[in-house]
């Protein structure tokens, strides 16, 4: 539980940022070079997708005290977050760019912020990409969760990333990390991870 080297300044940063993801990387962006440098920084647990594709990278901006990179944490207890923070700093410093990394928790990260190419990379890597995250009341979501299987009818199926079959079954709500559930394909019989909607 060591304090991060760069203190979180969620409140200070939140006013300046819009509610959604900021996965912008446009050639005319003032920080295009920085965004491009950060393309090499991946999720240490899922090395095929980078932080922008995951919706973790929120903003790159110039402040009075220097360049700032704003990232948003995924799960509260995700052990990869401090690694990602270090990786951002290291990637930039290797290119001779000094920057501070800020962690902003509001609005909360959502799997809906993953980019389409990020989802496709997950699938190709063997992880079924997340369905849209739930909306509505938390209780309704939970009841919907549990009755999905019981009702059987209108269930959201998860396609097997190996063979594409929708004939799959959940073996465990939690997989190798908090963000994934464990599934098995009933056609090709391969077990696979499903990135849970968050």
């Amino acid at each position: 539980m060591q304090a991060d080297a760069t203190p979180s300044q969620a409140n200070a940063a939140s006013a300046a940022l819009p509610d959604g993801p900021i996965a912008l990387k446009k050639p005319n962006d003032a920080f295009y070079t920085t965004w491009s440098l950060l393309e090499s920084v991946t999720d240490p647990e899922i090395p095929v997708v980078n932080l922008r594709e995951m919706g973790i990278l929120r903003a790159v901006r110039q402040t009075a005290t220097g360049l700032e990179v704003v990232i948003t944490p995924t799960y509260s207890g995700c052990p990869a977050m401090s690694q990602m923070q270090d990786d951002v700093v290291n990637a930039l410093s290797r290119a001779g760019v000094a920057a501070r990394v800020l962690t902003q928790i509001a609005p909360a990260w959502s799997t809906d912020w993953m980019t389409p190419e990020g989802r496709e990379k997950l699938r190709a890597y063997g992880i079924a990409p997340p369905h849209p995250s739930g909306c509505g009341s938390p209780v309704a979501n939970v009841i919907q969760f549990s009755s999905k299987r019981a009702a059987g009818g209108a269930e959201l199926t998860v396609a097997c990333p190996q063979c594409g079959s929708h004939n799959t079954t959940e073996t465990s709500h939690f997989g190798s990390t908090a963000c994934k559930a464990l599934y098995r394909c009933l056609d090709c019989l391969e077990p696979f991870d499903y990135f849970k909607p968050y």
């Binding site: 799960y75 509260s76 928790i105 509001a106 609005p107 909360a108 990260w109 979501n141 939970v142």
Partner: peptide, 15 residues
């Protein structure tokens, strides 16, 4: 505001 932000994240996990 910070507690509200923590709540939004924690809710997703608690579900």
């Amino acid at each position: 505001a910070q507690l509200a932000a923590i709540a939004s994240k924690s809710l997703k996990e608690t579900q």
